[in-house]
Design a protein around this nucleic acid. Structure first.
Lengths: 217, 217
DNA sequence: GGCATCAATCTACCCGTGGTAACTTACCGT
DNA sequence: ACGGTAAGTTACCACGGGTAGATTGATGCC
């Protein structure tokens, strides 16, 4: 109800309105959005809250990202790029299939460790950005399938894809588990993945159990 | 805008308002909710839509389930019970660790196949019911860890939990993959899981690659 | 330096949807 | 029959996503 000419909310040092370039503003908004979405959850995060954090008002967000979901998608897209960079760099440094699997897995866990906000975006708000997150998984799956194909040339494409799905799913779950129980280190998680994916339980199952050897027909 | 005394929507045989017992009504609502949530997605599903499908009005849903989220949680809880029933029954029929892993995995995929709506609830709306779905995973993880403990008595508890996380994560991912590509059968998915979890990639990686044997230090 | 121009930004608003208060009515026991 | 109670309804509020139109700050032109 105040006269708009006054607008005397508070800002003493702020000349009431600062104009900022497009790229800069979008970076600011993305950063604020990741933070707000991560700490309040997508559903409970209001656009006003994101806007306030940036220091602007709601319509600004809409001119840049179109909708609330668009904003979330932009956040996810950013995380996607970073994730592929990190894991492919790790795999490139490996000298053989086992090390590739180990270093790539390790890089994944480390990335999520360092980027806690991105983590909660990807694995807590998955249902809203379902398609985008599936896109990330497809990216990782294709990448891993290609690596596996080099290590096991006699396996057909479908099987390679299936193995990659197993690894991606296992890593996701281990990551969430680690977030719940901080005593599980990156190396622990990597080791457990290697136990199954590389070694296989057959070698770890004791013969103490009935007939464990006679069943593998 | 019609006079409420007429209520002439359609129902010729319906005496304008039928009273239904509590249990029966809750069953109806749960069924409608699963369907509506699955086909429109939780965020885009309105309580009015669920109510209309049941043939009642909104407040009825609230007297029974308290909130929209409460309704979703009830759906998830129901799926949880059924899932444990199905997988534990399958494992109980197995004669050894390998068969247990195989039959349990197979039962999981089959269950999701038959209950497509429950599937999309559990793996598409995960972020809203995050805690509840995590509870389901914990249930499955504990169950699998117990089975693994019998097969590998010399593995410590943490490692068993880690292995169980790997298996649960891998199965989830394989299930989603199957939903996207229907050419992947239940047996395919089960086999790919067994390739890694039971056999291990080491046995499938050809020696053609450089130094695959010399790195396992 | 002064002014036109354009885009960035704000104010004020709409409307769909989750959620609730208060009234009504069908069924059940007596 | 008849009252009590639980099942249902209508009518409403509030909050948050999304938008139209006024506003203002930087930029270039003279």
């Amino acid at each position: 109800m105040e006269s708009p000419a006054q607008a005397g909310t508070a800002g003493p040092a702020s000349p009431r309105r600062r104009r900022v370039g497009r790229e800069e503003r979008e970076r600011q908004i993305l950063g604020a959005a990741v933070a707000v979405f991560a700490e309040r959850g997508y559903a409970n995060a209001s656009m006003d809250a994101v806007a306030e954090r940036v220091g602007v008002t709601k319509p600004v967000l809409y001119t840049h990202f179109g909708s609330k979901e668009g904003l979330l998608l932009a956040c996810v897209a950013q995380a996607r790029t970073e994730l592929l960079d990190v894991t492919s760099a790790a795999a490139a440094a490996a000298a053989g299939p086992e090390e590739m699997l180990r270093l790539g897995t390790r890089a994944f866990f480390t990335f999520l460790d360092e980027r806690a906000a991105a983590f909660s975006l990807l694995y807590s708000e998955a249902s809203i950005a379902a398609d985008a997150v599936e896109g990330i998984r497809a990216q990782q799956t294709d990448f891993i399938a290609a690596l596996l194909g080099a290590a096991a040339p006699d396996a057909d494409t479908r099987r390679l894809q299936g193995w990659a799905q197993v690894i991606v799913g296992a890593c996701e779950r281990l990551a969430v588990w680690r977030a719940q129980d901080r005593r599980v280190t990156v190396d622990d998680a990597t080791e457990y993945l290697m136990d199954l994916a590389w070694t296989g339980l057959r070698d770890r199952a004791s013969g103490a159990d009935r007939a464990s050897g006679t069943l593998s027909g």
